[in-house]
Amino acid sequence: MSRPLNADIDLDALRHNYRLARGLAPHSRTLAVLKADGYGHGAIACARALDGLAPAFAVASLEEAASLRMAGITTPIVLMEGIFEASELGDVEALNLWMAVHSDWQVEALLAYRPAHPIPVWLKVDSGMHRLGFAPHRAEAVWARLAAASAQACDLHLMSHFATADAMEPGYFHQQMAVLSKLAERLDAPLCLANSPATLAWPQAYGAWNRPGVMLYGSDPLEASNATSRQLRPVMTLRSAIIAVQTLAAGEPVGYGGRWKAPRPSRIAVVAGGYGDGYDRHAADGTPVLVAGRRAALVGKVSMDMLTVDITDIPEADIGSEVVLWGRAATGEVLSVDEVARHCDTISYTLLTGVLPRVPRRYHGGAD
């Protein structure tokens, strides 16, 4: 019998979430972000599931794009950070990729290159994130240079990234949006702006392209959920089982350091799954899990290969009972990865992308 921990990937839920994003902005084209191995879900499987739905994919690096091409994915792929050295331009051309440019050296490398066909380019503007991109007062000159280099660049777009589109206080989002709107108007430039929170909450950010990421995988990125984000379906279920049960007297400690002590006579389930699988070691006592479809609480520190759960109030739970660390239980009950992340003082992105390779991915749903 194999270890019972698996990451079940619901490709029907992925397609549902993509259609939800696309339906919010029917006049935009909606690319699907597949970076970080599809946010831990498996980029190749996700790309195949979205083939024919998404008109383009987005990744962070040439290596990520190459793995999709090697798997037979022919859909356009955008390099969201562009190239990391000039020598990569040959691969960009050979793999038929689109690329962002955010720095002077990337522009110079592209203009010095002689492709057989011009490369689609998305010019990244720093509208207030202060991470990557050209300052707005410089973007016009860079745009003009690229527009004049018809042998090297084509299909120019402006792109940027919002720092606070997920926040309830919209002031900084509106500030960024004003900068971008004015720049796009002056250049008569198509825009790619809306990430997951902007797609869910800010229609004024919809452009020629939108670029949802984590929402495609069922995570709600908004500080305060709205009616649309509550329609997202979890794509990954991190599913395990009870492998042992301990019966403890009141006052007995559990786990390394004895952080948690039983407040009453307790039944403690030992579950296959730990930080060696990517489950966050910082999970606090009380972090929710689903045991046999019912909510229970993690107790004690997470170990490398195991964690412990208080099942005192779930008398039917025993060795072999299903444990869902996040996602959808066999009973239909859902435990949001976002709720688990809050108990770990982190975000869903780190949990989803942190599930390690030793956890088998099991895909369900197939193609449309």
Rank of each mutant, 00 (worst) to 15 (best):
M1Y: 02
I9M: 05
H16L: 12
N17S: 02
N17A: 03
G23D: 14
L24Q: 07
L24M: 12
L34M: 08
K35D: 08
H41W: 08
A49C: 06
L50K: 01
A56D: 08
S61Q: 07
L62F: 04
E64Q: 12
A65K: 02
A66V: 11
L68M: 12
L68T: 15
L68S: 10
R69N: 13
A71L: 09
M80A: 15
S87L: 10
E88H: 08
E93R: 05
N96L: 03
D104I: 14
E108F: 06
V125P: 00
D126I: 13
R131T: 12
A135E: 14
E140G: 05
A141T: 12
A148K: 06
A151S: 09
A165H: 03
G171L: 12
Y172N: 05
H174Y: 15
A189H: 07
A189F: 04
A189K: 01
A194E: 09
S196Q: 12
A205M: 04
A208K: 07
V214E: 07
Y217S: 04
P221F: 05
L222H: 01
L222T: 05
E223Y: 05
E223R: 02
A224K: 11
R230M: 13
R230N: 12
L232K: 00
R233F: 04
P234E: 08
P234M: 11
V235L: 00
M236Q: 13
Q246C: 02
T247P: 00
A249R: 10
R259N: 03
A262K: 03
P263V: 15
V270T: 14
G278W: 03
Y279R: 00
D285Y: 06
G286A: 03
A292Y: 00
R294T: 15
R295K: 11
A296K: 02
G300H: 00
M304C: 06
M304P: 02
E316L: 02
W326N: 01
G332T: 09
V334F: 01
S336M: 08
D338Q: 14
E339Q: 14
R342H: 11
T346G: 03
L352V: 04
G354Y: 07
P360W: 12
